[in-house]
């Protein structure tokens, strides 16, 4: 799935629409530089999932947990890399929640085999390219 977003609201709406494809235990990895729209997409996604609070950037807290119909874990791995255990990674991603991870590439081998990867690229001041890939690796 590939889409060009023309505004922050577009990015939000894309996330909101994408939520209908998700259920508990789904894992979504987000990839893209600062300001590319990862958090805006997540806000839309969480709204679509029926979270009771507005999603916000986990830059400060690293792990945010939003209550709602399905609980959502929102993680920022920007500076975590080799310390996944310290943030309780195993418990967080295997918990019956929807898991959204910014800078998911930092998790390397710890990424679940079955997941969605969402790539954000900055085209110009307002436009972003957003691409969603479904990964289904059955251990081969």
């Amino acid at each position: 799935m590939n889409r060009i977003s023309h505004s922050e609201k577009d990015t939000f709406d894309f996330g909101h629409d994408f939520a209908s494809r998700l259920s508990a235990n789904d894992f979504i990895g987000l990839y893209g530089e600062l300001g590319a729209g990862k958090t805006a997409f997540t806000r839309g996604l969480c709204r679509g999932l029926g979270c009771l609070v507005e999603a916000h950037s986990p830059t400060y807290n690293i792990v945010n947990i939003y209550p709602g119909r399905i609980e959502v874990v929102h993680i920022d791995l920007y500076r975590i890399e080799n310390d996944l255990d310290e943030i309780g990674w195993t418990d967080l991603i295997d918990s019956g929640r929807v898991v959204i991870v910014e800078w998911a590439e930092k998790a390397k081998k710890e990424l679940p085999n079955k997941r969605f990867d969402v790539f954000f690229a900055v085209i110009d001041e307002n436009q972003r390219q957003i691409r969603i890939e479904q990964i289904n690796d059955f251990g081969n």
Binding site: N61, I62, V63, Y78, R79, D83, E86, I87
Partner: peptide, 10 residues
């Protein structure tokens, strides 16, 4: 400090 943010578990 080294994480550049607050790690809730820690």
């Amino acid at each position: 400090q080294k994480y550049g943010g607050v790690v809730p578990e820690l």
